[in-house]
């Protein structure tokens, strides 16, 4: 992390703590400001974790509602974002456990749409192949154990540093690194070669 980012981070942290203090005193607007900061990240994480929009929306709402109720327990050792992410991860894991109990088959829901973000100049067959590959990647991501998936999403998709990944998962930095490493290993074993040929 560069010095400018560190400075920003410190500044932002102080500001965030002030918002937390206000929210603790019952200032709803302050909590809404906090919510705005982390809503997208939490929703992305939830969606990647549970694999469908309805559950993800439910998790986001429950997560912020719990965050508000238990704000007095937040001690400021980590950032508010890390704290709220850790709540979201726990909720996602609970939801996944429920889902697994509920469904008899072990498949996952088909992704509603897998958009293709590459150049539209590609041929239709190439685009179809790419779409298929990304759909497989998404399914493989969903098939990872929850902790691995959470670690990978936070690290790669959300770009969080390892200390925040670790704090969100409630584990050590070393374990967080191991989770990400293991998740990468599993995904690249399954799809690495195809991805390299397709996207590399």
């Amino acid at each position: 992390m560069g010095p400018a980012r560190q400075l920003n981070s410190k500044h932002s942290r102080r500001e965030e703590q002030a918002l937390v203090d206000l929210a603790r005193d019952g200032d709803a607007a302050a909590y809404e400001a906090l919510l705005e900061r982390y809503l997208d990240r939490t929703f992305n994480l939830a969606l990647r974790m549970v694999g469908n929009r309805e559950d993800a929306e439910d998790i986001v709402q429950e997560c912020f509602a719990r965050g508000y109720r238990h704000l007095h327990r937040f001690r400021g050792k980590s950032s508010f974002g890390t704290w709220i992410t850790s709540i979201a991860i726990r909720l996602c894991m609970d939801a996944e456990r429920r889902q697994r109990r509920d469904r008899l088959s072990f498949g996952w829901e088909e992704s509603s749409s897998t958009a293709v973000t590459r150049s539209s100049r590609e041929s239709p067959s190439r685009r179809a192949e790419r779409r298929e590959l990304l759909a497989r990647l998404e399914r493989s991501l969903q098939a990872l154990p929850a902790r691995l998936r959470a670690a990978l999403v936070l690290r790669v998709l959300e770009g969080l540093p390892y200390d925040e990944v670790a704090a969100s998962l409630g584990t050590s930095i070393r374990s967080a690194r191991m989770y990400v490493f293991e998740a990468r290993k599993r995904l690249s074993t399954l799809l690495g070669e195809e991805l390299r040929e397709e996207l590399g």
Binding site: T114, T117, R118, L141, E198
Partner: peptide
């Protein structure tokens, strides 16, 4: 490629 694939996910 894996990173790129993950980031290309919708």
């Amino acid at each position: 490629a894996l990173d790129e694939g993950l980031l290309s996910l919708p």
